[in-house]
Design a protein around this nucleic acid. Structure first.
Lengths: 153, 153
DNA sequence: CTTGATAGTTAAGAAGGCTAATATATGTCC
DNA sequence: GGACATATATTAGCCTTCTTAACTATCAAG
Protein backbone atom coordinates (compact mmCIF):
# COMPACT_ATOMS: atom_id res chain seq x y z
CA UNK A 1 0.00 0.00 0.00
CA UNK A 2 2.01 2.99 -1.25
CA UNK A 3 4.85 4.37 0.84
CA UNK A 4 4.05 4.37 4.56
CA UNK A 5 2.53 7.49 6.06
CA UNK A 6 5.57 8.21 8.19
CA UNK A 7 7.72 8.41 5.11
CA UNK A 8 5.27 10.72 3.39
CA UNK A 9 5.02 12.99 6.43
CA UNK A 10 8.78 13.32 6.63
CA UNK A 11 9.06 14.01 2.94
CA UNK A 12 6.37 16.65 3.19
CA UNK A 13 8.20 18.25 6.09
CA UNK A 14 11.38 18.35 4.04
CA UNK A 15 9.54 20.08 1.22
CA UNK A 16 8.00 22.63 3.56
CA UNK A 17 11.27 23.43 5.24
CA UNK A 18 13.10 23.91 2.01
CA UNK A 19 10.55 26.29 0.56
CA UNK A 20 9.80 28.29 3.67
CA UNK A 21 13.35 28.66 4.87
CA UNK A 22 14.61 29.81 1.51
CA UNK A 23 12.11 32.65 1.43
CA UNK A 24 12.67 33.47 5.08
CA UNK A 25 16.42 33.82 4.59
CA UNK A 26 15.93 35.97 1.53
CA UNK A 27 13.63 38.20 3.56
CA UNK A 28 16.11 38.67 6.40
CA UNK A 29 18.92 39.46 3.97
CA UNK A 30 16.79 41.98 2.18
CA UNK A 31 15.62 43.80 5.27
CA UNK A 32 18.79 43.69 7.33
CA UNK A 33 17.06 42.18 10.33
CA UNK A 34 18.95 39.36 11.94
CA UNK A 35 17.38 35.97 12.38
CA UNK A 36 17.42 36.48 16.15
CA UNK A 37 15.53 39.75 15.89
CA UNK A 38 12.92 38.38 13.55
CA UNK A 39 12.59 35.35 15.73
CA UNK A 40 12.00 37.55 18.75
CA UNK A 41 9.34 39.53 16.93
CA UNK A 42 7.58 36.33 15.98
CA UNK A 43 7.62 35.13 19.58
CA UNK A 44 6.12 38.35 20.84
CA UNK A 45 3.51 38.08 18.14
CA UNK A 46 2.61 34.55 19.15
CA UNK A 47 2.62 35.19 22.88
CA UNK A 48 0.79 38.46 22.77
CA UNK A 49 1.84 40.68 25.64
CA UNK A 50 4.45 38.97 27.77
CA UNK A 51 7.33 39.70 30.11
CA UNK A 52 11.00 39.90 29.28
CA UNK A 53 11.93 36.76 31.15
CA UNK A 54 9.12 34.84 29.47
CA UNK A 55 10.70 35.78 26.20
CA UNK A 56 14.15 34.69 27.26
CA UNK A 57 12.93 31.45 28.69
CA UNK A 58 11.10 30.57 25.54
CA UNK A 59 14.09 31.31 23.38
CA UNK A 60 16.47 29.46 25.64
CA UNK A 61 18.60 32.45 26.63
CA UNK A 62 19.15 34.41 29.83
CA UNK A 63 16.84 37.28 30.65
CA UNK A 64 19.82 39.61 30.20
CA UNK A 65 20.14 38.48 26.60
CA UNK A 66 16.41 38.88 26.07
CA UNK A 67 16.55 42.36 27.51
CA UNK A 68 19.31 43.41 25.16
CA UNK A 69 17.62 41.91 22.14
CA UNK A 70 14.43 43.68 23.09
CA UNK A 71 16.25 46.95 23.62
CA UNK A 72 17.33 47.00 20.02
CA UNK A 73 13.88 46.19 18.77
CA UNK A 74 12.54 49.09 20.81
CA UNK A 75 15.18 51.39 19.38
CA UNK A 76 14.14 50.34 15.90
CA UNK A 77 10.54 51.10 16.73
CA UNK A 78 9.38 47.51 16.30
CA UNK A 79 8.52 46.65 19.89
CA UNK A 80 7.40 48.50 22.98
CA UNK A 81 7.82 48.04 26.71
CA UNK A 82 5.24 49.23 29.19
CA UNK A 83 4.76 48.67 32.88
CA UNK A 84 2.62 45.97 34.32
CA UNK A 85 0.25 47.75 36.66
CA UNK A 86 -0.38 44.71 38.77
CA UNK A 87 3.29 43.99 39.37
CA UNK A 88 5.49 46.86 38.53
CA UNK A 89 8.62 44.77 38.41
CA UNK A 90 7.37 43.28 35.17
CA UNK A 91 7.46 44.88 31.78
CA UNK A 92 4.75 44.15 29.27
CA UNK A 93 6.28 43.58 25.88
CA UNK A 94 4.19 44.30 22.79
CA UNK A 95 4.68 44.92 19.10
CA UNK A 96 4.29 48.35 17.58
CA UNK A 97 2.32 48.61 14.36
CA UNK A 98 5.63 48.66 12.48
CA UNK A 99 6.62 45.49 14.29
CA UNK A 100 3.34 43.83 13.46
CA UNK A 101 3.83 44.74 9.84
CA UNK A 102 7.28 43.14 9.74
CA UNK A 103 5.86 40.00 11.29
CA UNK A 104 3.03 39.88 8.79
CA UNK A 105 5.37 40.38 5.85
CA UNK A 106 7.76 37.70 7.00
CA UNK A 107 4.88 35.28 7.38
CA UNK A 108 3.58 36.14 3.94
CA UNK A 109 6.91 35.60 2.19
CA UNK A 110 7.36 32.35 4.02
CA UNK A 111 3.94 31.08 3.09
CA UNK A 112 3.22 32.60 -0.29
CA UNK A 113 4.28 29.48 -2.13
CA UNK A 114 1.43 27.70 -0.38
CA UNK A 115 -1.04 30.00 -2.10
CA UNK A 116 0.38 29.14 -5.48
CA UNK A 117 0.36 25.47 -4.52
CA UNK A 118 -3.32 25.59 -3.62
CA UNK A 119 -4.15 27.03 -7.02
CA UNK A 120 -2.74 23.97 -8.72
CA UNK A 121 -5.42 21.78 -7.14
CA UNK A 122 -8.85 21.06 -8.52
CA UNK A 123 -11.79 21.90 -6.21
CA UNK A 124 -12.17 18.21 -5.40
CA UNK A 125 -8.51 17.87 -4.54
CA UNK A 126 -8.70 21.03 -2.45
CA UNK A 127 -11.50 19.61 -0.39
CA UNK A 128 -9.70 16.31 0.03
CA UNK A 129 -6.49 18.00 1.20
CA UNK A 130 -8.42 20.38 3.41
CA UNK A 131 -10.07 17.54 5.29
CA UNK A 132 -6.81 15.66 5.72
CA UNK A 133 -4.91 18.67 7.03
CA UNK A 134 -7.63 19.62 9.45
CA UNK A 135 -7.47 16.11 10.78
CA UNK A 136 -3.72 16.46 11.28
CA UNK A 137 -4.08 19.80 13.00
CA UNK A 138 -6.72 18.48 15.32
CA UNK A 139 -4.66 15.44 16.24
CA UNK A 140 -1.62 17.59 16.85
CA UNK A 141 -3.57 19.63 19.35
CA UNK A 142 -4.44 16.41 21.11
CA UNK A 143 -0.79 15.38 21.03
CA UNK A 144 0.16 18.62 22.78
CA UNK A 145 -2.49 18.13 25.41
CA UNK A 146 -1.20 14.67 26.22
CA UNK A 147 2.42 15.66 26.46
CA UNK A 148 2.25 19.01 28.15
CA UNK A 149 -0.77 18.73 30.43
CA UNK A 150 0.56 21.04 33.12
CA UNK A 151 2.38 23.86 31.45
CA UNK A 152 0.08 26.64 32.58
CA UNK A 153 0.21 26.23 36.38
CA UNK B 1 -17.74 24.62 3.06
CA UNK B 2 -15.42 24.56 6.09
CA UNK B 3 -12.55 27.04 6.28
CA UNK B 4 -10.85 27.60 2.94
CA UNK B 5 -7.88 25.47 2.02
CA UNK B 6 -5.46 28.40 2.10
CA UNK B 7 -6.33 29.05 5.71
CA UNK B 8 -5.88 25.41 6.62
CA UNK B 9 -2.53 25.21 4.85
CA UNK B 10 -1.23 28.24 6.70
CA UNK B 11 -2.46 26.93 10.01
CA UNK B 12 -0.78 23.60 9.35
CA UNK B 13 2.44 25.39 8.51
CA UNK B 14 2.26 27.30 11.76
CA UNK B 15 1.82 24.06 13.66
CA UNK B 16 4.74 22.43 11.89
CA UNK B 17 7.05 25.37 12.47
CA UNK B 18 6.24 25.59 16.12
CA UNK B 19 6.87 21.93 16.80
CA UNK B 20 9.93 21.47 14.65
CA UNK B 21 11.69 24.66 15.59
CA UNK B 22 11.25 24.11 19.30
CA UNK B 23 12.96 20.74 19.10
CA UNK B 24 15.59 22.04 16.75
CA UNK B 25 16.56 24.86 19.10
CA UNK B 26 16.70 22.52 22.05
CA UNK B 27 19.00 20.27 20.07
CA UNK B 28 21.41 23.06 19.16
CA UNK B 29 21.55 24.29 22.75
CA UNK B 30 22.19 20.82 24.02
CA UNK B 31 24.96 20.02 21.60
CA UNK B 32 26.63 23.43 21.49
CA UNK B 33 26.45 23.63 17.74
CA UNK B 34 25.35 26.98 16.41
CA UNK B 35 22.37 27.27 14.12
CA UNK B 36 24.66 28.31 11.29
CA UNK B 37 26.82 25.24 11.71
CA UNK B 38 23.91 22.85 11.80
CA UNK B 39 22.39 24.62 8.86
CA UNK B 40 25.61 24.18 6.92
CA UNK B 41 25.73 20.48 7.74
CA UNK B 42 22.17 20.09 6.51
CA UNK B 43 23.00 21.83 3.25
CA UNK B 44 25.97 19.59 2.62
CA UNK B 45 23.78 16.63 3.37
CA UNK B 46 21.14 17.75 0.90
CA UNK B 47 23.55 18.72 -1.85
CA UNK B 48 25.81 15.76 -1.55
CA UNK B 49 29.35 16.64 -2.50
CA UNK B 50 29.61 20.29 -3.49
CA UNK B 51 32.08 23.14 -3.64
CA UNK B 52 32.65 25.88 -1.11
CA UNK B 53 31.17 28.62 -3.26
CA UNK B 54 28.09 26.52 -3.97
CA UNK B 55 27.60 26.33 -0.25
CA UNK B 56 27.99 30.05 0.24
CA UNK B 57 25.72 30.91 -2.63
CA UNK B 58 22.99 28.69 -1.35
CA UNK B 59 23.18 30.15 2.11
CA UNK B 60 23.33 33.70 0.83
CA UNK B 61 26.79 34.53 2.19
CA UNK B 62 30.16 35.21 0.62
CA UNK B 63 32.45 32.31 -0.15
CA UNK B 64 34.80 33.66 2.51
CA UNK B 65 32.10 33.18 5.12
CA UNK B 66 31.36 29.71 3.80
CA UNK B 67 35.03 28.84 3.93
CA UNK B 68 35.31 29.88 7.57
CA UNK B 69 32.15 28.10 8.55
CA UNK B 70 33.43 25.01 6.83
CA UNK B 71 36.83 25.32 8.46
CA UNK B 72 35.25 25.07 11.88
CA UNK B 73 33.22 22.05 10.84
CA UNK B 74 36.38 20.37 9.57
CA UNK B 75 38.17 21.10 12.83
CA UNK B 76 35.32 19.49 14.70
CA UNK B 77 35.55 16.45 12.50
CA UNK B 78 32.08 16.87 11.03
CA UNK B 79 32.97 17.72 7.46
CA UNK B 80 35.83 17.01 5.08
CA UNK B 81 37.41 18.83 2.17
CA UNK B 82 39.05 16.99 -0.69
CA UNK B 83 40.29 18.10 -4.05
CA UNK B 84 38.22 17.97 -7.17
CA UNK B 85 40.32 16.02 -9.65
CA UNK B 86 38.62 17.55 -12.63
CA UNK B 87 39.18 21.12 -11.51
CA UNK B 88 41.72 21.40 -8.79
CA UNK B 89 40.64 24.88 -7.83
CA UNK B 90 37.50 23.37 -6.36
CA UNK B 91 37.20 21.60 -3.09
CA UNK B 92 34.74 18.78 -2.76
CA UNK B 93 32.90 19.17 0.53
CA UNK B 94 31.49 16.07 2.18
CA UNK B 95 30.25 14.98 5.57
CA UNK B 96 32.26 12.68 7.78
CA UNK B 97 30.43 9.84 9.43
CA UNK B 98 30.29 11.93 12.59
CA UNK B 99 28.77 14.75 10.57
CA UNK B 100 26.22 12.44 9.02
CA UNK B 101 25.25 11.25 12.45
CA UNK B 102 24.67 14.80 13.68
CA UNK B 103 22.51 15.51 10.66
CA UNK B 104 20.49 12.37 11.19
CA UNK B 105 19.98 13.12 14.86
CA UNK B 106 18.87 16.66 14.21
CA UNK B 107 16.39 15.46 11.62
CA UNK B 108 15.04 12.85 13.98
CA UNK B 109 14.67 15.37 16.77
CA UNK B 110 12.86 17.75 14.50
CA UNK B 111 10.54 15.14 13.09
CA UNK B 112 9.93 12.74 15.92
CA UNK B 113 6.65 14.39 16.86
CA UNK B 114 5.39 13.40 13.42
CA UNK B 115 5.84 9.76 14.31
CA UNK B 116 3.76 10.18 17.43
CA UNK B 117 1.19 12.09 15.42
CA UNK B 118 0.88 9.29 12.89
CA UNK B 119 0.17 6.84 15.66
CA UNK B 120 -2.91 8.79 16.69
CA UNK B 121 -4.57 8.07 13.34
CA UNK B 122 -6.69 5.06 12.45
CA UNK B 123 -5.52 3.05 9.43
CA UNK B 124 -8.26 4.64 7.34
CA UNK B 125 -7.24 8.11 8.37
CA UNK B 126 -3.62 7.27 7.71
CA UNK B 127 -4.42 6.27 4.17
CA UNK B 128 -6.51 9.37 3.63
CA UNK B 129 -3.75 11.68 4.89
CA UNK B 130 -1.14 9.77 2.97
CA UNK B 131 -2.93 10.29 -0.32
CA UNK B 132 -3.50 13.97 0.35
CA UNK B 133 0.11 14.66 1.29
CA UNK B 134 1.47 12.79 -1.69
CA UNK B 135 -0.74 14.93 -3.85
CA UNK B 136 0.70 18.07 -2.25
CA UNK B 137 4.25 16.85 -2.67
CA UNK B 138 3.69 16.03 -6.29
CA UNK B 139 2.12 19.41 -7.01
CA UNK B 140 4.94 21.18 -5.24
CA UNK B 141 7.43 19.50 -7.51
CA UNK B 142 5.43 20.80 -10.44
CA UNK B 143 5.42 24.27 -8.88
CA UNK B 144 9.20 24.20 -8.69
CA UNK B 145 9.51 23.11 -12.28
CA UNK B 146 7.33 25.98 -13.43
CA UNK B 147 9.13 28.64 -11.46
CA UNK B 148 12.73 27.60 -11.80
CA UNK B 149 12.91 25.92 -15.17
CA UNK B 150 16.51 26.88 -15.85
CA UNK B 151 18.43 26.61 -12.66
CA UNK B 152 20.74 23.78 -13.72
CA UNK B 153 22.45 25.26 -16.79
C1' DC C 1 10.35 48.76 58.46
C1' DT C 2 13.48 44.90 57.46
C1' DT C 3 14.62 40.83 54.89
C1' DG C 4 14.74 38.29 51.04
C1' DA C 5 13.06 37.02 46.51
C1' DT C 6 11.97 38.48 41.77
C1' DA C 7 12.17 41.35 37.23
C1' DG C 8 14.69 44.07 34.58
C1' DT C 9 18.74 46.64 33.10
C1' DT C 10 23.59 47.49 32.44
C1' DA C 11 28.59 46.65 31.72
C1' DA C 12 32.45 43.86 30.37
C1' DG C 13 34.29 40.33 27.84
C1' DA C 14 34.19 36.23 24.78
C1' DA C 15 32.70 34.03 20.65
C1' DG C 16 30.51 33.59 16.24
C1' DG C 17 29.74 35.14 11.82
C1' DC C 18 29.90 38.64 8.29
C1' DT C 19 32.36 41.53 4.66
C1' DA C 20 36.17 43.38 2.12
C1' DA C 21 40.67 43.06 0.67
C1' DT C 22 44.43 40.25 -0.41
C1' DA C 23 47.00 36.18 -1.63
C1' DT C 24 47.67 31.76 -3.95
C1' DA C 25 46.74 28.10 -6.92
C1' DT C 26 44.50 26.59 -10.93
C1' DG C 27 42.11 26.73 -15.33
C1' DT C 28 41.34 28.81 -20.00
C1' DC C 29 42.17 31.31 -24.07
C1' DC C 30 45.29 33.44 -27.29
C1' DG D 1 54.36 30.98 -22.29
C1' DG D 2 51.41 35.13 -20.97
C1' DA D 3 47.10 37.33 -19.68
C1' DC D 4 43.04 36.98 -17.51
C1' DA D 5 39.32 34.67 -14.98
C1' DT D 6 37.99 31.54 -11.27
C1' DA D 7 37.99 28.95 -6.57
C1' DT D 8 39.53 28.93 -2.27
C1' DA D 9 41.95 30.52 1.79
C1' DT D 10 43.55 34.03 4.94
C1' DT D 11 43.46 38.16 7.42
C1' DA D 12 41.66 42.25 9.70
C1' DG D 13 37.91 44.69 11.43
C1' DC D 14 33.10 45.13 12.57
C1' DC D 15 28.63 43.92 14.44
C1' DT D 16 25.57 40.90 16.90
C1' DT D 17 24.59 38.01 20.55
C1' DC D 18 25.65 35.43 24.37
C1' DT D 19 26.98 34.91 29.52
C1' DT D 20 28.28 36.41 34.04
C1' DA D 21 28.13 39.64 37.48
C1' DA D 22 26.74 43.72 39.50
C1' DC D 23 22.94 47.01 40.42
C1' DT D 24 18.12 49.04 40.87
C1' DA D 25 13.31 48.76 41.64
C1' DT D 26 9.50 46.32 43.27
C1' DC D 27 6.95 43.02 45.89
C1' DA D 28 5.76 39.90 49.80
C1' DA D 29 6.21 38.17 54.49
C1' DG D 30 7.35 38.78 59.08
Amino acid sequence: MSPPLIHTLHEWMRVIMRHSMRNFILYTKEHKYSAAQLNTLLRIHRNGACSVSDLGEEMGVTSAAASQLLERLVQQGLAARSEDLRDRRNKVVTLTSAGRQIVQESIVVRQSWLDRLAELLTPEEQEQVNVALQLLIEKTVRLDEEEGPGRKS
